[in-house]
Amino acid sequence: MSETRDVILSTIRQSLRRGPIYGEARAALEERIRSHPRHLIPSRAGQPPAALIDLFIAKARAASTSVVEVSDRGEIPQAVMDYLANENLPARLVQAPGLHDLDWAAAPTVEVRMGAAEKADEASLSKGLAGVAETGTLLLVSGPENPTTLNFVPPTHLVVLFRNDVVPAYEDAWDLLRVNGTNPRSANFITGPSRTGDIEQKIQIGVHGPLRLHLILVGR
């Protein structure tokens, strides 16, 4: 196995007409990784905060994410209940453990289970780490607080995102992880519900992943 590896690496070096890279040259490459410089960021990401929130919401909607705004976290359960009722969906969901302190007393008809998603789950509620304004994209990361299956298995996916967590560009969202020093098993950038154009190029929403993606944006 390692022999194969060495053959491939030495073919690469032969083709590039050089030997292995050591010393300063190697250190420069390691430094490029350590400092991970940013490249050109589109100017649309450089707007003032209020305009960025507007951009984020507009782009999310353009990607078929439905968006509702609530002023504080106490209003989340009601917003969930209303959404499920409006869409004629059963008042049941599986919730990310990270949202355990939500007080469901305000939405007593909603049946809530905590954990990862299972085959039969019809709706899930998870928490977004960040919203990326440039394309209306959500970033969700895995962990005991936020199992990945919540993002993909149930046909309806609701996401809670705090306004303060809306950032200009993908790089800003990723920096939130870098700052935490976390390197999650899975990080999902999600822009709208699942879709396909595989049948005669006609866009169909909801193929394998969620049919509905509903964002609850929290804060003033």
Binding site: A63, T148, R185, G209
Partner: peptide, 24 residues
């Protein structure tokens, strides 16, 4: 590719399930 600004899912995976993960 498809003329979307961003695809629906851009997913970054890193190794197997961690000890405290509920799935993966």
């Amino acid at each position: 590719s498809t003329g979307q600004e961003f695809s629906v899912y851009t997913s970054v995976s890193n190794g197997p399930k961690r000890s405290d993960d509920l799935d993966g």
